[in-house]
Amino acid sequence: MRTLTPFSILAPTTLQDSFQHIEEHGWNAALYAGGTELLLTMRSGLASFPYLIDIKKIPQFDEISFNKDEGMLTIGAGATHRSIETSPLVLEQLPLLAEVESMVANIRVRTVGTIGGNLCFADPHSDPATLFMAWAGTTFELVSSAGVRQIAPDEFFVDLFTTARAENELMSKIHLPILGKRMGGAYKKFVTLERPTANVAAFLGLANGKIDSARIAVGSVGPIPVRAIDAEGTLLGGFPDEKLFERAAETAAEATDPVDDVYGSKEYKKQIVRVLTRRALKQAATRADRSQ
């Protein structure tokens, strides 16, 4: 780590002001939320910026709210992992999200790091990114002086550290539909180093004892989390049993194309994806079965 090169911090207190700063400084400025990734990048000598735009002072930027009529939970992009993990609203409406958030990094990073920062940084080893990829109906809200747009996770994540967010856009919110009846979700991760080696999120819906909806996402083994569409297909209309899950897991693993790196070999990561998918499906089915 090297010492930080000098910069100034701008701290807009309205969205409008922040757009102005972004437009004025362009590439010379970085949006700064918790800074857990940004400062690390700067201290590693990978980037330097004369201006940091502290977006934490924007009102309601970290608000967590629930719209009962729409069945939507909305998380401000500036909400920290820790505040999401411990939010009574989240614990009540979307306990799976609280569970996943409690698995992120360590308590200090969770205290400071924001959900928006996690998603916008697009580190391939992200827990929430994989979760949201599998979560049907999730949208991210991006705002700029030009207006507001909603974007789905599979369009948002483009590549390693690359998203569809335009330079002048800010992520303001994450909208998550609560799970319907007979729906269950589960998240499994496998950790050998500091960040996840592989992770899988799965959602299953049951009707008359059969699977009528299935979403699986696999993360950390490639540049971005991906849906396991073929595996989802094998599940639809089937009975939720171990054999079917094993087949789906096999399909999910085969669909991945992991890289060999310090986290493990390609072959091994495929195995882990297989195991995690099977375990996630099993738990999702149990939870679906229990949710009336």
């Binding site: 800074g35 857990t36 400062l39 201290r43 200090r108 990073v109 205290t111 400071v112």
Partner: peptide
């Protein structure tokens, strides 16, 4: 709340 002072700006 616990934070890592090694990586947090005094500004915060």
């Amino acid at each position: 709340q616990p934070v890592s002072s090694c990586s947090l700006l005094a500004y915060e």
